[in-house]
């Protein structure tokens, strides 16, 4: 166990614990955007940056993926950290002024008018890559890529056209921190405007509610290697059957 001092609170942490885990345990608030418990933290959005002191040396690190490997002093609200967070929010706000999540954070840190200007501003995407990560690591279909690089970098389906591997599960919609990925369920179809992909929704055999896409059922059948009641009935009906 290592000695950890976070914002004046003295505690202990096991090797390889991340700063964010310690902060959550000690109820110290660190803002996050691209962090999600279910996937490997990448430190893409930089908003969780904190100042650490190891052997008398101070440096700025991302709390979400910094493993504690020795005694450490952490300051999550130092002047340097706040200055950097404001800058990051300024950049994010310039790119995604329509995103409620970014607006909220910017307001909290006192950022109103970013000094940077970007041409295209109706997009809410902060290019954190969570959608790509969840599609690859959790869903396992790898339908999305982070294409191009630098300022052009963006999540998209290969060739920016309807994906042949996407199963329409909506994990990317669920995980997106800024609601940049959307899906529309309408007239028995599910459409992802960002991925330009459409699916047919399938009815639950008991209650007639639309609950899954046809591609999803096909994929699950393949993965499970057999037919299963959960591919025919919606979760609500399944829970009723179990009772």
């Amino acid at each position: 166990m290592f000695k950890v001092k976070i914002d004046g609170i003295e505690t202990e942490a096991a090797p390889e614990t991340t700063i964010l885990e310690v902060a959550n345990r000690e109820l110290v608030e660190i803002p996050t955007l691209c962090f999600n418990d279910n996937v490997e933290p990448r430190g893409a959005c930089r908003i969780c940056t904190v100042e650490v002191e190891i052997w008398g040396r101070k440096r700025l690190v991302t709390a979400c993926n910094y493993p504690i490997r020795g005694d450490i002093v952490i300051d999550t609200k130092s002047e340097k950290v706040m200055k950097l967070r404001r800058l990051i929010l300024e950049v994010l706000l310039a790119r995604t002024p329509k995103s409620e999540r970014i607006q909220e954070l910017a307001k909290k840190y006192g950022v109103s008018q970013p000094r940077f200007t970007v041409e295209k501003t109706d997009d809410k995407c902060i290019v954190c890559g969570l959608c790509v990560q969840v599609c690859r690591d959790i869903v396992g279909v790898s339908a999305l890529s982070l294409s191009e690089r630098g300022i052009l970098r963006k999540p998209e389906t290969p060739f920016d056209e309807a994906s042949s591997t996407c199963i329409g599960c909506g994990s990317c919609v669920y995980i997106c921190p800024t609601d940049a990925v959307t899906m529309i369920d309408k007239d028995g179809k599910r459409f992802f405007p960002r991925w330009k992909t459409e699916f047919k929704l399938v009815k639950c055999e008991s209650c007639d509610n639309l609950f899954m896409t046809d591609a999803q059922i096909k994929y699950l059948k393949k993965v499970m290697g057999k037919d299963d009641p959960c591919l025919h009935y919606c979760p609500n009906c399944l829970a009723l059957f179990k009772k």
Partner: peptide
């Protein structure tokens, strides 16, 4: 190799 990965490399 998934198409998404190849597309990522090619556009990079």
């Amino acid at each position: 190799v998934p198409m998404s990965e190849i597309y990522q490399v090619v556009t990079f």
